[in-house]
Nucleic acid binder design. Structure first.
Lengths: 129, 129
DNA sequence: TGACATCTACGAATAACTTCGTATATTATC
DNA sequence: GATAATATACGAAGTTATTCGTAGATGTCA
């Protein structure tokens, strides 16, 4: 039954747009463009074109009832994150999630709360193998 | 003093070659090509060209004393891994290393030993803030 | 030395991603 | 309804990554 269609891999520009959509929810091109303006400096039509491409790829859905089309993410943030991590595991960590985790934890100083959250997950993983 | 020159970002093909060099140590183009053959099916001159580009970029060093040049990695595996993780953090996790760790841990079932290693690192992080 | 194998150098084709200008359609406003 | 504002659609250029064929240099060995 499970037809697990491999979620498409977003490019960098696409990922930036997806993040806006995940954060804001349904948005017009203008919304996304303004949200990205603080960080990047891409033209309006560039964002438009990218979102059209993403629509063709099935990364977003689109409601064109009104003049300004409204876009929504068609992929789950968690699924994309999982994909990106698996790709990174294959390419740079020989598949070892633990190496990646160790490396990630040593990059940034974490707050006690964050460390506690990770510890809690470890507990759960050890309990239910 | 620290002139922390940002390590260059390897592409996918470059990363595959770097992994061979990290594993095997000093290698000729032929060595790398043969090592990659099991996984990919890239032509010899393709690998050659890539390694020449990597040399120009400073990703590898080269000893051309003999006819077959000998290449060595010029960047540390750990530094590249750190870079890739930081890039992924910025692009997909809003900088939250914890989210990435939690996601990574939930992907693959880990052995008790691996979980213990992570736990040990957590202990260390909590002890020395 | 001469024939053969092996290597590097180089140019160039292909594909993917990103960018934006221009044209055209739609909506709002006076 | 005319004008301005705003939207989409489309084509195309620039960049980067990947690929490989061919030419020329270098080494091997009988």
């Amino acid at each position: 039954m499970s037809s697990e269609s491999t979620p498409p891999r977003p490019t960098d520009a696409e990922l930036a747009i997806l993040r806006v959509l995940w954060d804001r929810g349904a948005s017009t091109v203008r919304d996304v463009h303004e949200a990205l303006e603080s960080t990047q400096s891409t033209g309006y039509t560039t964002v438009l074109k990218l979102m059209q491409i993403m629509h063709a790829k099935g990364l977003v859905t689109r409601d064109d009832a009104n003049k300004a089309h409204v876009y929504r993410p068609a992929v789950e943030e968690e699924a994309i994150q999982r994909n990106l991590i698996e790709s990174l595991l294959d390419r740079a960590f020989q598949g070892s999630a633990e190496q990646l985790v160790l490396r990630a934890l040593s990059i940034k100083p974490s707050t006690p709360e964050e460390l506690a959250a990770i510890r809690a997950l470890l507990d759960k993983l050890e309990d239910t193998p």
